[in-house]
Amino acid sequence: MGCLHSTAAREYPGHENPVKLASETAFSVSEVEALYELFKSISCSVVDDGLINKEEFQLALFKNRKKENLFANRIFDLFDVKRKGVIDFGDFVRSLNVFHPNASLEEKTDFTFRLYDMDCTGYIERQEVKQMLIALLCESEMKLADDTIEVILDQTFEDADVDGDGKIGKTEWSDFVIKNPSLLKIMTLPYLRDITTTFPSFVFNSEVDEIAT
């Protein structure tokens, strides 16, 4: 450390270069390296292959590898950018970047739209919202009468489906989110602003000079 001309980030065999990932995201090089610590701990939890599979993702989220969850599956699928059934380090960093406090509202809005457009039709449809609502109720062991679920869906679509075609398009979703900003709360992880503090063990290992990068 301390060499002003040093730009030599550590290399991770089989993974994208931290300097490149930092240049494409809101993370600094040392933050990308700190994320590698997190990635490493998740990706070796079941199979030590340097990739995160669905079971490992669930284990990291719930501390329980057998817990099936519709939403965790959706997040996993969106993180699995290359559609390989696993998340590699580049996918992990770029996807988490959307959750950075400094990421744009457009990116966050777009991510939530894709999250809820489960069938990838370009619309969030009523039956998808119903399916997610029922999944949420099961997960939280809440019971609501069928009529109540329909009332909630009616109300939601009355507010969000402005053209009344029974589905929520991208523009309708953007407008809805602007009126209901709390819906994007899940899209910001304060941890990401200070990731090197979250993983202090990394700091002692860093080979990167932040000034130089």
Binding site: F62, A72, M132, L133, L136, I186, Y191
Partner: peptide, 26 residues
């Protein structure tokens, strides 16, 4: 009785599966 301010997405966004903060908790 349905809370007047609830919409489906507000409920959905409380899912534990959407709370990625837990990835950072040991």
């Amino acid at each position: 009785k349905t809370p007047v301010t609830m919409n489906a997405f507000e409920l959905i966004s409380t899912s534990q599966g959407l709370n990625l903060g837990s990835l950072f908790e040991k």
